[in-house]
Design a protein around this nucleic acid. Structure first.
Lengths: 187, 187
DNA sequence: ACCTGAACACCGTTCAAGT
DNA sequence: ACCTGAACACCGTTCAAGT
């Protein structure tokens, strides 16, 4: 049995995805290469292709795994302002866990498989805020685009680069406050 | 005189930047290569390096040129709601002129040299809206992050991918409306 | 079944040599 | 001054050959 010469234990897709995420967090998506990944795993570069069909498929998997964490805790009873904050905070937590992946995934939406339930949290929120149903789709896009987009800008360092002394947490809360006050206008 | 064998007329940095932008618009930043760029210009790949120090410098120049167009028309007299719409619409026009470059520049803020005057338009707006001065910096970041981020998401196709029938123009106006109503809360 | 070395078609960039 | 061919150190991926 031709077990890997250098490691002695078999390779697995799981292990490959985790190592990829480690490189992405440490060096950025752009610096992830199949050859570097193999080196990280102490494995022949070509061995990876027995567990993962391609680099694109690997990135798809990592992006989609990450997107699964976006579902916020169910929260139907709470006031809608609280619900929206919860969504925004969940997004921010995920964005900051893997900032390079977050920005990259926004640039390559085709890589991420998004769960059906992702929009439900927004819908619950808009319902509770008294937004007319025929406006749901557009407002959901507006909110999602601004929250996800803001976090992508923050993750990439675009916001810190522009103003020197920034409390990034407070700036994000300011952004969410603007959205909440704005949404309140639909009541 | 060793004028280029294939073209007969001399190469220039200007010409290189324009050709790069053409490839970026047609195929995306990620598919721009020095060798492809040389082919587009019907030139030896190595000739480029006599006019441009590196691919990174080339992208820096193109990104910074593009960012210069972000300065909106001076508009101090108008109501602040109108001023903010003007900024947002200017940003959107530029984002949609070169969508791939826009998203890429957001992911790589270090590539873009931003003019000093870029924030003045926001400041004018906040002043006119009656926002307390000590909140300017944070609100400016919040607004810039959400507008630029939303447009990056739109340019990359993240918003269209999520909902099938989207009027992207209307969705953006909805987003800007939310921000204006939100800002109005500071009055 | 799993691994691997050589090979192919790409990259960005350096450098010595040409005119 | 401007151009160029060969070369170097990288990529992702295929495939035939090994165990």
């Amino acid at each position: 049995m031709a077990v890997n010469a250098r490691r002695g234990r078999p390779l697995s897709a799981e292990e490959i995805h985790l190592a990829a995420l480690r490189i992405i967090d440490a060096e950025g998506v752009e610096r992830l290469s199949m050859r570097k990944l193999a080196a990280e795993l102490d494995v022949n570069p070509m061995s990876l292709y027995h567990h993962v069909p391609s680099k694109t498929a690997l990135l798809q998997h990592v992006c989609s795994m990450n997107a699964k964490s976006l579902l916020p805790p169910p929260n139907e009873g709470a006031p809608w302002q609280r619900q929206l904050r919860e969504i925004a905070d969940t997004y921010r937590r995920i964005a900051r866990e893997h900032p390079s992946l977050w920005s990259y995934a926004q640039l390559h939406p085709e890589l991420t498989h998004r769960e059906e339930g992702l929009w439900e949290a927004f819908n619950d929120c808009l319902r509770a805020a008294g937004v007319p149903k025929e406006r749901f789709a557009q407002i959901r896009i507006a909110l999602f685009g601004m929250v996800a987009g803001y976090l992508s800008a923050e993750a990439a360092g675009l916001l810190a680069a522009n103003d020197d002394q920034v409390d990034t947490e407070a700036a994000f809360q300011t952004a969410v406050d603007l959205l909440i006050t704005g949404l309140d206008g639909y009541r």
